[in-house]
């Protein structure tokens, strides 16, 4: 029955592509979370009136973040070809997509982290200082825990954007559902393959959104 409706769909190919998409998204989300959080913290800490206030450092980081955030992803992939070749050795396969995914998403997430940190009541940071907390303690025990719900909802949005990016990366050879939809579906005119790939991408997005919302509501005690 299913085979009649979807004559061109080879399920092991679909499965392999899904795993690739999940792999690329998963690694990219973890790396983006770490890199973006560090960049966001630096943006916040070096801004006016904060612990490491430093105009020059803040300007430089903000400029880098803004530039990478503004480059369209598809162009970023092309710009990063030399770096990717040097790092991964090839432009094909899931790993080849990772540098572009991470460099594309981390600045995007860094801004969300900065905004989340700015939402923290200044008084709470001041109270921690008054208790004799070191900067490291303030980062680990005040800034990150107090902004955690916003950090989680931010990474949810970023992860969903990353699923979209993997599809784009797929078109230029990185594998995954995007690659499948383009090569097997679009180029060979197999609409059923494109359809199945699309549905799977949607399912992944919905699952990410659901998990993100659930975790956010669990940790938000405000």
């Amino acid at each position: 029955m299913l085979a009649n409706l979807l004559p061109n769909v080879e399920w092991d190919m679909i499965w392999a592509a899904t795993v690739e998409t999940l792999y690329m998204t998963g690694i990219a989300v973890v790396a983006t979370f770490i890199l973006g959080t560090i960049l966001g913290l630096l943006l916040f800490l070096t801004s006016k009136g904060n612990l490491w206030e430093n105009r020059l450092a803040n300007m430089i980081i903000a400029a880098v973040v803004n530039i990478f955030r503004s480059i369209p992803f598809i162009i970023l992939i092309i710009l990063l070809i030399p770096l990717t070749k040097w790092m991964v050795g090839t432009m094909l396969g899931a790993n080849a997509a990772l540098p572009a995914l991470i460099i594309g998403a981390a600045p995007f997430y860094a801004r969300m982290v900065e905004i989340a940190l700015r939402e923290i009541d200044k008084g709470v940071i001041e109270a921690a200082k008054a208790m004799g907390a070191s900067t490291a303690t303030i980062i680990w025990k005040v800034l990150l825990p107090e902004s955690l719900p916003a950090l989680v909802s931010g990474i949810t949005v970023t992860a969903i954007a990353l699923v979209g990016y993997t599809a784009m990366a797929g078109v230029v050879g990185a594998g995954g559902l995007g690659n499948l939809a383009y090569l097997e579906g679009f180029q060979r005119n197999h609409n059923d393959v494109t359809f199945v790939a699309t549905v799977l991408v949607l399912i992944i997005v919905f699952v990410i959104q659901f998990i993100g919302d659930f975790v956010t509501s669990k940790i938000d005690k405000r």
Partner: peptide
Amino acid sequence: FQHFNLLWS
């Protein structure tokens, strides 16, 4: 403090 400044988390 006036506004208590507790960690809500």
